[in-house]
Design a protein around this nucleic acid. Structure first.
Lengths: 158, 158
DNA sequence: CGGAAAAGTTAGACATGGCTTACAATCTTC
DNA sequence: GAAGATTGTAAGCCATGTCTAACTTTTCCG
């Protein structure tokens, strides 16, 4: 009820805020630090949009942020960012390794579904991908068959 | 650029509008017609929310709507509603028949993902579910094995 | 028929999350 | 060290989608 922008409570993050958090971790992992600009570029949003997101994330104690200062993730923020990133990875792998979808498309869909799929579903999906990899009699065999199956049942139009 | 609430253009529907459309079709399929009340109940939103959604859908020529009058789907509206419903079904089936997730959970997730997954992905998923059903040497065998696999790799906590 | 209940609508508020425009701070480079 | 470029912030707007409160219309009966 009383939770607003200033409360530091741990409600579920919106898809949008998860995107910002994930983007921050991603950039941090490949450079030394993050600048608002990096986030804006990565998410294709304007710089002002980044600023307001950062203010909200700071209020939730997920990032250390002060105007014009360095941005870092708090422990909690890092934990959450890592969870999102891991969901993304699991989804991406399922789409490419099991459904045999092109990586770019898989990437795009994973980006959206990662915010929706709960932990249990993603874990199950992770297990399924592993299961198909490890427990198939001939790991590459079913993929060939599935590809053939897809060709045979190709959509007629559009 | 010039498209607004009044234009009948065929932009992509928002997740929310898709929900309304889908709910209408669902109700229609099990009763003779739809009332705004039915939609409100089914989607757990207020009656005014339904009214405004209906106005938007009417502007997009997806429903026939006039204040206090009967609500019906146009041909285009029905087409779109059916597509959404079919995505829902495909997802639901994949979650229950392949991932072996409990129907209620599957339902909840399908409801959200149906708005995100594009046609190609859903089609691929449909083929995959069918493939696993038809082409497994022993259709029930891999499910047993997967269940065992899941038990063995059960998450330690939470 | 007539009035109460149910259903639908309008008006107005609020939250989210994006944008642009304009200004402020920082960095770069001579 | 100062000018210009880059980066960051503030203010204010818009769209979406929800809500409540209050009003209107329709429906249902007694």
């Amino acid at each position: 009820m009383e939770s607003n922008i200033l409360s530091g409570e741990t409600e579920r993050l919106s898809a949008s805020l998860e995107d910002y958090l994930e983007a921050m971790l991603f950039v941090i992992l490949e450079k030394k630090g993050v600048r608002a600009k990096d986030i804006a570029d990565r998410l294709s949003v304007s710089r002002p949009s980044v600023t307001s997101a950062l203010q909200v994330l700071a209020a939730k104690r997920l990032i250390n942020y002060a105007p014009y200062d360095v941005i870092t993730l708090t422990d909690e923020g890092e934990k959450q960012a890592e969870k999102i990133l891991s969901k993304h990875t699991v989804l991406q792998e399922f789409f490419t390794e099991v459904l045999l979808i092109e990586p770019e498309k898989a990437e795009a869909v994973a980006c959206k579904i990662e915010h929706i799929a709960d932990d249990a579903l993603v874990e199950r999906l992770r297990l399924f991908s592993r299961f198909m990899k490890e427990n198939a009699e001939s790991p590459e065999e079913w993929k060939k068959e599935f590809m053939r199956y897809c060709r045979e049942h190709k959509m007629p139009k559009k």
